[in-house]
Design a protein around this nucleic acid. Structure first.
Ligand code: FES
Ligand code: FES
Lengths: 145, 145
DNA sequence: TTAACTGATACTAAATTAGTATCAGTTAAC
DNA sequence: GTTAACTGATACTAATTTAGTATCAGTTAA
């Protein structure tokens, strides 16, 4: 049971790369090399992030992309929603307005609690938080890098 | 972002059906009609549930399936694991023993907390609990059914 | 003018999920 | 002891989602 797809995984990693180089235009190529993400695939992911307004781009030589706003305001939940849609444990609610069988609704009820929890947790994790965690880990383990 | 597949969804519903008719052999056909699940699909799901030991079967005319143990000991988490594997937010840990890039591990760390939470929550929901919830709802809304 | 970029879009491949079909064997009932 | 109602095993197809590739047009800096 995989919760995050490659799209989301790569997108978050790309956002971390961008967030660590504020105020500069970073190319898709640079990110793809740094994070070992297939270039063309990453380009398409970037284009989505741009359309969604999480990053802004500049065309042409010397161009690239950068975060559109403070990393602390970019939540992993936002990224998930862009690439995987909102977390929903079961889709049956949308099949019919009122489901034929109450048993499922009971299941659904239990499950929506969990859904809410997951959403809340992913909303707490921001790119800014990931970057500061990352820096802390680096300081501890590779001080002179 | 869909968390439960049809396999899991149908399996849980089937287990609820079985749990509501204790001490009797219920046929796949009956469950398929009661829960509006495609018959052949449900048969294969049942076979998995039998192999996994959650239900036991009896062959031949008058045969069918029944829960192998108390509904309170059958957790939705068990069903998810049978059909979707254990909840894992990101798979990257298994790519290499030590990942090339620490950034991902940071992400992973945050994410494993969420993974644990989801697992714990799904472990709390049992078929027995769903059945009792269901009965309560029926009493409230359809007292004479 | 050229090289280094992004924008847009079309395409393919692989994996997963969903569903169907068939035949063999078992049991109950007549 | 034949038949009908069942499960066991297994092979197959279809649909959807995920992952990845390719190409060409347009923009900008040097
Ligand atoms: S909401 Fe889907 S079955 Fe009740
Ligand atoms: S554990 Fe997968 S990248 Fe670190």
């Amino acid at each position: 049971m995989k919760v995050l797809t490659k799209h989301t995984d790569y997108a978050v990693r790309a956002l971390i790369s961008l967030g660590m180089k504020p105020d500069s235009w970073v190319t898709a190529k640079a990110v793809s090399e740094e994070q070992a993400i297939p270039y063309q695939f990453l380009r398409r992911i970037m284009q989505e992030l741009i359309k969604s307004g999480l990053v802004v781009s500049r065309e042409g030589a010397g161009g690239g992309v950068r975060l559109a706003r403070d990393p602390d305001t970019i939540r992993v939940k936002d990224v998930i929603e862009i690439f995987q849609g909102a977390v929903q444990v079961s889709e049956c609610m949308f099949r019919k307005q009122l489901c034929s069988n109450r048993a499922n609704c009971v299941l659904r009820h239990e499950i929506m609690r969990i859904e809410q929890m997951v959403n809340d947790e992913f909303a707490k994790v921001t790119v800014g938080k990931l970057i500061s965690d990352l820096k802390r880990v680096q300081v501890l383990s590779e001080p002179k890098l």
